[in-house]
């Protein structure tokens, strides 16, 4: 039987509502990795600090030891405690984003996927928003979501003691900080992804960016050089977090300088993405 006799019919729309293109891309970027066991395991591991912190909050609140809880430190339920918690998540942020985000654009470039995407009615912004959305999802999954859960726990166990701080102030600050840092970190990762064609190389560059700049900053700290500390990639975000949460600076760099550094990285990332993400690669 000739192949064409199997029939081709024109599509008749059902009238259902279609999702925006960026959401379709983001959904695919989230559901794909979540089918992999090692990523699920990584997410579970990333939640262990939150579980531990939750346990400490529970027992201290039950014991009525509020003075300790409201003080500084990782286990406290004050602003400093939550910023410390978010700082402590940096290893999981580094690994989980590398695993889920490094190949997002690199694979499309290697496999000629960009030309397929841009043969559809979507713009560069749709494409980037979709890719960034999936990375941001994983970032928020191990940073902001645990903060919400911990705040809720504290509020439910001792509502009178925690009051509006736990109900509104900390969740609002954490939301602002996590979205700000999350969007910026995501764009930087996607920029790296757009520069390569293989995930593994993107991961290597990402590791160098995170650990390399941190090592440089540590050396700079030893030498008393503020300039070198300003290179610390994740450190700038945490320093910015101190501004948002109203705590002491995390590194020996003024918070406005950290803000400028974050804005510069974000702008650079956008410039790279704008240049690299095209349906047609021009080889000059």
């Amino acid at each position: 039987m000739p192949v064409y006799e199997r029939g081709y019919t024109h599509w008749r729309p059902s009238g259902l509502k279609a999702l925006p293109a960026w959401l379709v891309i983001a959904r695919r970027g989230v559901t794909g990795p979540l089918k992999r066991r090692r990523i699920l395991l990584l997410v579970l591991l990333a939640w262990i600090p939150a579980i531990v912190k939750g346990g400490i909050i529970y027992f201290r609140l039950k014991a009525g030891n509020l003075t300790d809880l409201l003080g500084a430190g990782w286990a406290s339920i004050g602003p400093d405690g939550f910023l410390s918690f978010l700082e402590g998540q940096r290893f999981f942020v580094f690994v989980l984003l590398a695993v889920t985000g490094a190949g997002l654009i690199a694979t499309d470039r290697r496999e000629g996927g960009l030309t397929l995407y841009f043969s559809r009615p979507l713009s560069l912004v749709d494409y980037l928003a979709g890719k960034a959305g999936s990375v941001l999802f994983f970032y928020l999954l191990i940073t902001l979501l645990p903060v919400y859960v911990l705040c809720l726990e504290a509020y439910l166990i001792a509502p009178g003691a925690t009051g509006l701080t736990m109900l509104l102030a900390i969740p609002a600050r954490a939301t602002f900080y996590c979205l700000l840092s999350g969007v910026s970190i995501t764009l930087v990762l996607l920029a790296f992804s757009s520069l390569g064609k293989r995930s593994i190389f993107v991961m290597v560059w990402w590791a160098i960016m995170i650990t390399g700049t941190e090592a440089l900053a540590a050396i700079g700290g030893g030498l008393g050089s503020r300039g070198m500390q300003a290179l610390n990639f994740l450190g700038q975000y945490h320093n910015l977090g101190s501004l948002v949460f109203g705590t002491a600076p995390r590194i020996d760099v003024p918070a406005p300088v950290s803000l400028v550094m974050v804005l510069v990285w974000t702008a650079l990332a956008l410039a790279v993405l704008r240049r690299q993400v095209r349906p047609v690669e021009v080889v000059s």
Binding site: P13, A18, A21, R120, P121
Partner: peptide, 17 residues
């Protein structure tokens, strides 16, 4: 189906098509 959705089709239509 994924590329159908990116072309503006509802998810169910895209999968069927």
């Amino acid at each position: 189906a994924y590329l159908g959705e990116l072309a503006g089709m509802p998810a169910r239509d895209a999968m069927q098509r």
